[in-house]
Design a binder for these strands. Structure first.
Lengths: 335, 335
DNA sequence: TTGAAAGCGCTAACAG
DNA sequence: CTGTTAGCGCTTTCAA
């Protein structure tokens, strides 16, 4: 059964399609009387405007495309919450794609979203993204683009990030103050902005405390639990003397490290202290609860969406903006 | 800068738009030579077909709409993984909406997805969904529809669920065998299929063991951590004698209960044993690890998507199908 | 093997 | 205040 169109309404009311369209859009030219008739019939027929036709006509859809590396990561889930809230309020819908940390999938997603003629794109890159070619496609078609959290730095584009350096600095400074001597770092992929900045924060905090940096205590792994498991295992087995504290690039990695420590019967924080980054809900539930750096995820999503919307509505080339959000150290019993 | 269209290619090649269209779609009528010329120019111009125009013409988009109650729930995140995998392989994209457990938001989402003329809908209803009016909109426009996990039972529609009754039965049977005497149940919203079935499994398992059912040990709460906290608190404070084991409607609730028990210094399972439902990753990480019922979430997503695709491609009214997936009891140290 | 024309549902410029 | 016309980018008869 075909869906109701503006034409159907027009015929029944012996009006022209354009009048109906205008009435539906509350155009000032149309008489209240006509508007009423149109609206009530539309209601009765359960008319739903065909956004596809609208988009074709406007040469752009009211969809905001989002590409995240993993939907199941709570951090991204919260960000998505922030994005959708803002987008909905502005009359946009959101199309979420998961690149699953795969460069190839990320390309596919972007290609698809371009085909959908999205109004704009919000992207957080994968752990494996190296080239930036696919992001350049976006610029070429000048589709508004904002990166969040994990950004592509080769490209001039707006971005919303947290102060990763500062967050890491505070966490490690805290470990130093607590008196830990051999503070290790399980880091993420080297080229990722978040890994790099957090590592830099780690180094700077140790320097600031007048400590020498022992490079054997620095590992580059990944951003998932399994990387935490690998990393912690390696630190315990291959490094001697071992660390008495570990600052992990994020909470999933810290959780991985946590499970290794428990399995080996090591006490946290007595034998090894542990700190993460993100403040996943799980951080407060494990025992001992995890010291971590709180990232305002929802806020980040909101900001990114706002930035994008501004670009969309203003049309003209806007200078790339970089918003940096503050983090907060949450001290719990794991340190 | 306008994006490249079929017309641009046609002009440059002195062909008609229709020929270009056919060449791009590998139509047999077109000569290989022409196809090659078209394809290579398309490539060079980075032509991306405008799916909006295609959809308008086909009167249906290649988008599958998904409405979940909460994106951040790992269970749904995994389901979404399954859905997108299947959908992508079939050449569809997925538009994910979160109803945030709000009936109103759910309505909005559905309205929006209908406006987008999605090819089909995959829905898991909210905790607060009572009426089914908005689902009837979907049927009226005969848009293919499949419910998963949380289904609307007033409506004749295909669905993919797990055997909630059996899963709950196995969990409670296990608690009985372990020798627990006062087994409580923190349940979900009463009208939800999953809550009802799991409660029924609980009752049946106790009956099967020849136990009397103590109604004061049965609570109806919700599906989130906070409900677990409320529920467990109530069980400890208001019920006497208290329970020596609790079967929770899902893992988030079990986690909530877990944190209350720890806070009160009660030993798990010595003082109170705990079992959940879902097998969230967190279940294996907490200490003691949580006994729970594994739901094949990704598989559920895959099945739901496959069912929907079949409906989409076959067009004709298909009889509603109900797929029931098996669960598996995962026994850990919390019981 | 290719082209011309019409139309998907909507909006907007131009007329009246 | 309302109607006519054209067109968004693509596919698809029908004709050549």
């Amino acid at each position: 059964m075909r869906q109701t169109t503006i034409k159907d309404i027009a015929e029944k009311l012996r009006l022209s399609p354009s009048t109906v369209s205008r009435a539906l859009n509350d155009h000032p030219d149309i008489s209240e009387n006509t508007k009423d008739r149109v609206r009530s019939l539309a209601e009765r027929l359960e008319y739903q405007p065909n956004s596809i036709a609208q988009s074709l006509q406007k040469r752009r859809s009211k969809i905001i495309g989002v590409v995240v590396p993993q939907v199941k990561h709570v951090f991204f889930a919260s960000i998505m919450g922030g994005i959708t809230d803002v987008a909905y309020d502005a009359g946009y819908t959101v199309m979420i794609c998961s690149s699953n940390e795969s460069h190839q999938r990320e390309e596919m997603n972007i290609r698809e979203l371009i085909a959908q003629r999205v109004a704009g794109l919000l992207i957080s890159i994968t752990q494996s993204t190296e080239g930036c070619e696919h992001f350049k496609w976006i610029r070429k078609r000048n589709i508004p683009l904002v990166f969040f959290d994990r950004v592509c730095e080769e490209l001039e584009a707006s971005q919303v990030v947290v102060d990763d350096h500062d967050g890491a600095f505070k966490a490690v400074q805290h470990l130093v103050q607590r008196g830990y001597k051999r503070i290790a770092h399980i880091g993420g992929p080297e080229f990722l902005n978040i890994s790099r900045e957090r590592l830099r924060g780690y180094r700077d905090a140790l320097h600031a405390a007048g400590r020498e940096i022992d490079e054997t205590l620095i590992l580059h792994a990944g951003l998932n639990e399994e990387h935490g498991i690998q990393g912690m295992t390696e630190l315990l087995d291959a490094v001697s003397p071992g660390p008495d504290a570990v600052f992990c690039v994020n909470d999933p990695v810290a959780i991985g490290a946590y499970s290794v420590l428990r399995q080996k019967g090591l006490k946290i924080p007595a034998d090894v202290a542990l700190a993460g980054f993100s403040d996943n809900p799980i951080a407060s539930i494990i025992d001992p609860p995890l010291t971590t750096v709180l990232q305002p995820a929802t806020e980040m999503g909101r900001r990114a969406a706002q930035l994008l919307l501004r670009q969309i509505e203003f049309e003209k080339e806007t200078v790339p903006v970089r918003e940096v959000l503050k983090t907060e150290l949450v001290v719990r019993q794991s340190t």
